[in-house]
Amino acid sequence: MTAPDQDEALQKLLQALRGGSSTSPAGAAVPPSLPPVNEDPMYLGAETLQRSYLTRAAEIRGNFDITDLAKAQQIAKLWVDTCAQLVEFGEDIQARRTARAEWIERQLPVGPGIPADVSPADRVVLNAAWRTAWERVTAGDHKRRQQLLAEATRFGDDTLKRAVLTACLDLSETDTVDEWTKSHDPATGALLTEWRYLRSLIAGDHFDNRWEPLTFRKPPKPGEVNELPRLERAREAAQRGAGR
C-alpha cells in the first residue's frame, strides 16, 4: 500500500472513530461494549499509522529534489506527529475500557447499594445494616460465605447478599460468585465476566492485548531528529556568509 493509500485508510478510520457514538462513551448513558482487541478501530488505526510512518519516511529520504535540511525537518515533524497520534490512540482505547468497566461495576450487586436520595436518618440505619452484614461475612471462611450467600438468597436479604458478593470478589473467591450468578442472575454473570476481562485488559496482562505494547509503541527516534540542529546551524552560517 502506498503512502497516499495508507493516509486515506487512516483518515477513514479517524472519521469513523470521531463520528461514531461507540468511540465517545463519555457522553453516552451506557458506554458500549468494545470490539475484540485486534478489531478495535484504535488498534487498527495504530497499525495503519505505523506502516504509513515507515512508508512516508522512506519516500522523504528518497526525494533527491529537496535538501538534507528539508528532509530532516519533514521526517522530524512526521515522527513527532506519529508519536502524538499513537499516544492518542492508546489513551482512547484505555479510556473506553475504563468507562465501560466503571459502568459495569455500578450495575453489579456489590457494595452497600444505598440510594443517593435516602434521608439522613435512613442512611444511618442502612449503613449500620451494611456494617453488620460485612462483619458477619468477613469473619467467616470461604465455606461460611457460601452458606451466608445461600441464606441471603433464600430470605431475600439484599444487604447480606451484596456483602457476600463484595467480599468474594475482594478475596478472589470467584467460584462462589460464578455459581450464584449462573443459578440466580445470568445477566449479572455476563456483566461480571466482561468486567473481569476489561480489568485485565486495562492492566495489560491479558493474552488478548499481548501485541498492544508493540502496536502503540512510538517508532524509534530517526537520526534526522538529532541531525536537525546541526543542519540548521549550517544553513544559518551559510546565510551569514552570503550576506557579507
Rank of each mutant, 00 (worst) to 15 (best):
Gln50Val: 04
Gln74Lys: 08
Ser22Leu: 11
Glu59Lys: 06
Gln147Leu: 11
Trp103Ala: 07
Asp185Ala: 10
Ala237Met: 08
Gln146Phe: 06
Glu151Gln: 14
Pro109Asp: 01
Arg230Phe: 11
Ala46Val: 02
Ala129Tyr: 09
Pro36Glu: 07
Thr23Cys: 13
Gly241Met: 12
Thr193Glu: 09
Pro222Ile: 04
Asp117Tyr: 06
Ala150Pro: 01
Gln107Met: 15
Asp178Glu: 14
Gly27Arg: 10
Arg162Tyr: 03
Leu214Ile: 07
Arg240Thr: 07
Pro120Lys: 08
Leu198Thr: 00
Arg100Ile: 09
Thr159Glu: 05
Ser33Phe: 15
Gly243Val: 15
Val87Thr: 15
Asp141Pro: 04
Gln147Pro: 01
Ala167Gln: 04
Trp180Gln: 01
Ala150Leu: 09
Thr82Leu: 09
Lys12Trp: 14
Arg199Lys: 13
Ile75Lys: 00
Gln11Glu: 14
Gln73Cys: 10
Gly27Ser: 12
Gln15Ser: 14
Thr174Asn: 14
Cys168Met: 03
Val225Met: 08
Phe89Arg: 00
Thr193Gln: 06
Asp157Met: 01
Glu59Ile: 06
Gly140Thr: 09
Trp180Thr: 02
Ala167Asn: 02
Glu105Val: 07
Arg196Gln: 11
Ser52Pro: 00
Arg51Lys: 15
Thr138Gln: 12
Ile75Thr: 01
Ile114Leu: 04
Asp175Gln: 11
Gly189Leu: 06
Arg136Leu: 11
Gly113His: 03
Leu54Pro: 00
Ala237Asp: 13
Thr153Ile: 09
Thr48Val: 15
Thr23Phe: 06
Asp178Tyr: 03
Arg162Pro: 00
Leu108Cys: 05
Glu102Gln: 14
Gly140Pro: 04
Ala57Asp: 02
Pro220Tyr: 10
Ala72Trp: 00
Tyr53Asn: 00
Ala26Glu: 13
Val137Ser: 03
Arg144Val: 12
Leu126Tyr: 06
Trp79Lys: 11
Thr132Gly: 08
Val110Thr: 04
Pro222Thr: 05
Ser200Gln: 08
Ala121Val: 11
Val164Trp: 01
Ala95Cys: 10
Gln50Tyr: 03
Ala121Asn: 10
Leu10Ser: 09
Arg235Val: 10
Gln6Arg: 10
Ala116His: 04
Asp40Thr: 03
Asp158Thr: 08
Asp175Arg: 13
Asp117Glu: 09
Leu198Pro: 00
Glu135Arg: 12
Gln146Leu: 10
Thr176Gln: 03
Thr55Cys: 07
Met42Ser: 02
Leu165Phe: 02
Lys218Trp: 07
His206Lys: 08
Ala76Glu: 12
Leu54Arg: 06
Ala57Leu: 07
Pro25Gly: 08
Arg235Gln: 15
Thr98Pro: 03
Arg96Thr: 04
Ser52Asn: 07
Pro32His: 07
Lys71Trp: 01
Pro31Val: 05
Thr166Asn: 02
Ala95Gln: 07
Thr2Pro: 06
Pro115Ser: 05
Val80Pro: 05
Lys77Leu: 14
Arg217Glu: 08
Glu212Ala: 04
Asp7Asn: 09
Thr67Tyr: 12
Arg154Ala: 13
Leu191Phe: 14
Arg136Ala: 05
Lys221Asp: 14
Glu179His: 13
Leu169Asp: 09
Val164Tyr: 02
Pro220Val: 12
Arg56Phe: 03
Trp211Pro: 04
Leu10Asn: 03
Ala237Glu: 12
